[in-house]
Write a protein that binds this DNA or RNA. Structure first.
Lengths: 109, 109
DNA sequence: CTGACGCATCAACGAATCTTGATTATGGAG
DNA sequence: CTCCATAATCAAGATTCGTTGATGCGTCAG
């Protein structure tokens, strides 16, 4: 059933999103990016972390849609993606909200 | 330094919170709990999952503060904890908000 | 008391995740 | 072209996580 597939993809995306937020290094990166665009070298200095480590975490954040990147010469600049953050907040709001009439009718989920 | 310790504990708590949200089974549990209190047996039926598996995930959710439990006879009832969900939403809002004047003054983090 | 039920906990295993150091790819400087 | 800087990717190892089946603990019924 198509809706099943969609539900699956929806869940996968949500899982990836919260997984990306569930790591200290990645949260530190996001905190830094609140102050604006940063290149990887800025972050290695600020967080005192190896370059390959940051590349790894930046990829996780990017795959989750939490950041976007841009190349300028030999530098890669990373920026927060507020859209995805908003979606994350929405997902949480949904969890703490009462089920709709339609949801109550169909039982659940 | 005390503030360092506090910052560490704060980060740990945040990491645990989002980690708890980054699993399909746990998200399904939370979805069910939106409809109200449920015992473990309800959830094993609804999610078609082994009992020990649900116990494991419920513990993760409880340790993160996302649910609370209550014993009634031989049944354990689990309930959503909206406070923690609100905190999660706040954490995300902070990430997507512009840094305060004080934050900009002290550089960052 | 005894047996059954509901659930938590444990041990063991495979899978996923994170870190580190080395290698590769890309772009700019000389 | 050659060399250096920046960053992505890879391989290997350590750690954490999730699942399963077995065991233990508390509670109720008979």
């Amino acid at each position: 059933m198509a809706t099943r597939t969609h539900a699956r993809a929806y869940t996968d995306r949500t899982v990836r999103l919260f997984h990306a937020l569930s790591d200290g290094t990645r949260l530190s990166i996001l905190q830094r990016l609140r102050f604006g665009e940063r290149c990887v070298c800025d972050l290695t200095d600020a967080l005192d972390a190896a370059q390959s480590r940051l590349s790894f975490h930046l990829k996780v954040l990017k795959d989750a849609g939490l950041v976007t990147d841009r190349r300028d010469g030999r530098w890669m600049y990373y920026t927060l993606n507020p859209e995805t953050l908003d979606q994350a907040a929405e997902l949480i709001d949904t969890l703490s909200s009462a089920p709709s009439a339609a949801e109550r009718k169909t039982g659940c989920c």
